[in-house]
Nucleic acid binder design. Structure first.
Lengths: 138, 138
DNA sequence: GCTTGCTCCTACAGTAACTGGAGGTTGTAT
DNA sequence: ATACAACCTCCAGTTACTGTAGGAGCAAGC
């Protein structure tokens, strides 16, 4: 171990697969602390920042919204707390994902039905259009 | 049949289950034509507008993005065209929904695995946190 | 005729989570 | 000395609306 050196924002971006603008956005949003600056105003990072950003990215990859990430970060900082709260956040998120999958599946079924009804004629007797324009023939 | 009367924007909203602001937004976006106005500047609608808006809402309910709705509206107006183009738009949309379902399902699997690893201890040995903070222990 | 209350108007800010670009400075390598 | 990359700040744009502020019109009741 290792060069616990100063990293530029570009280094941090490369290490974590994050865009530079996104890092600035996270700072602005309070997910990352205000970075220290060099005399000329450039941001300087350390390994702790890399870890924090990696945590954020990993959480985002699992689909947690930023608000949830914020809570997770707070909880993760307090090593002696029970991890109940963390578990709860994750379960709420899981339920949300399940809801989205259910919604999309229902949509998929319906859309598939609509497409199946297409007889490949003209628009005049297109069943898709009819489905979209409920009782346009009154 | 019927009072093919003048409708206010509120009437139209009620008939189609759309918010008044949303109707104005659709007009602004070019999905609905610029409405005629009364002397005092209020929008006036007819049955044709109800049908067009119902078409838009139905398309939205099937998850079509506004750009697709715009295309569908154009195509629907030309009754003699083959409905091939319509079918194509719908299939592209279906493919997009399938992609989203696949993404969410993969996410769900991963998140479920992470949650399952929680041993309900303290944050210090919380497996969820460990998953989120990859190799924080160097 | 007047007031009350509902509906309408325009215009703009906010949502989620970034992304990209303009316009300008700094650091580094040749 | 001069490129050129990388940095800086600020701001607009993305999707599809939703909500609010501030003001005007309209219909009904008294």
């Amino acid at each position: 171990m290792a060069e616990a050196a100063h990293l530029t924002i570009g280094d941090l971006a490369r290490q974590t697969g994050t865009k530079v603008n996104t890092i600035r956005f996270y700072e602005e949003s309070g997910l990352l602390p205000q970075a220290e600056r060099t005399a000329s105003g450039r941001r300087v990072y350390r390994d702790a920042d890399t870890r924090r950003l990696a945590f954020i990215r990993q959480s985002r990859n699992l689909g947690f919204p930023l608000d949830a990430v914020r809570e997770l970060l707070t909880l993760a900082d307090d090593a002696n707390q029970p991890c109940e709260a963390i578990d709860r956040i994750a379960r709420v998120h899981l339920a949300e994902i399940d809801r989205k999958i259910a919604d999309l599946s229902a949509l998929r079924t319906e859309l598939d039905r609509v497409i199946g009804s297409c007889s490949h004629g003209t628009v005049a007797d297109c069943k898709i259009i009819e489905t979209l324009a409920p009782r346009a023939h009154e």
